[in-house]
């Protein structure tokens, strides 16, 4: 396999993106596809400017973006805060694992859209149900990853800690948690990816703002340009989130893949 330096990788990726956009523009300019089906990149740029100026359906554009990211971030935060310690505990305690694992394994493969009717009946159509749908998707995935991570902690590290007088709780937080950090960051990356995809499901529940809602709403008015703007934004925010977590991993678990 050829080795590429990071700069070359970036240049090639950028050129690939630019080529794609140019071909897209040319396809539209020569009217190979109807503009209703596929608006051109230039049209989409116009739409973006228009959205920033006039908003979408009574709400300013930035509000749609903020509402969605706030919903998702809060759900991610709670899911990680509860999911990581719970997963670590499940990985280290066979009894605890035997109690909780059936629920986790049963709930995890269910498409979260299937939960919408129940969630609406139980939690109503407010923010609670939207939070829950993003939370549950992220949470289950965090638990599975954290469980596996804590089981991969070298036994010798735990033995070493025991000879230094650490009790069970101290070992969990001062050895197992830091030792699992590289894997936990990878788990968080995957889980946030899954949580972010369930944003749309969450905003299908009686929302009046948010990127997911905007996409669904614009679709029903055949505003494909707005739909595409929404999709590009979802992708970009997801990409930035992932990049932030990679940076956090490099900062707080710099030994990832090295020890």
């Amino acid at each position: 396999m050829i080795q590429l330096n990071p700069f070359k990788v970036k240049v090639i990726s950028t050129l690939s993106l630019i080529t794609f956009v140019i071909i897209w523009q040319l396809v539209c300019t020569f009217k190979l596809v109807s503009p209703i089906l596929l608006p051109s990149p230039l049209q989409i740029l116009d739409t973006v400017l228009d959205l920033f100026k006039n908003g979408y359906r009574d709400a300013p554009f930035y509000q749609h973006i903020l509402v969605s990211t706030a919903r998702a971030f809060f759900a991610f935060f709670v899911a990680i805060l509860i999911g990581v310690p719970l997963g670590l505990l499940m990985g280290r305690s066979p009894v605890f694992n035997a109690i909780l694992d059936p629920f986790v394994q049963f709930l995890r493969p269910i498409p979260k859209i299937a939960l919408i009717p129940l969630v609406v009946v139980w939690l109503g159509i407010g923010e609670e149900s939207k939070f829950f749908l993003i939370f549950i998707a992220t949470f289950l995935s965090v638990i599975v990853g954290a469980t596996a991570a804590s089981q991969n902690v070298p036994y010798g590290l735990i033995q070493a800690a025991q000879t230094m007088g650490l009790g069970k709780t101290a070992i969990l937080f001062r050895v197992i948690l830091p030792s699992s950090l590289p894997e936990i960051f990878t788990t968080i990356r995957l889980s946030i990816g899954i949580g972010w995809t369930s944003l749309i499901a969450a905003e299908m529940v009686a929302a009046t703002s948010g990127l997911g809602w905007m996409i669904i709403n614009a679709g029903s008015y055949l505003r494909t340009d707005v739909v595409i703007v929404g999709i590009i934004l979802l992708g970009t925010i997801g990409f930035i989130l992932d990049w932030l977590i990679v940076k956090a991993q490099q900062k707080w678990a710099p030994w990832t893949g090295k020890a």
Binding site: L157, Q162, T163, G165, S179, L181
Partner: peptide
């Protein structure tokens, strides 16, 4: 009956904590 701080162990693999520096590892106990 159980591990204790009166009996230190050096393993074949060093079993150090990678999130700490050399100095912090020595200080840890």
């Amino acid at each position: 009956s159980a591990p204790g701080i009166d009996r230190a162990v050096v393993f074949q693999q060093a079993q150090l904590f990678p999130w700490l520096t050399v100095k912090e590892n020595i200080q840890f106990p």
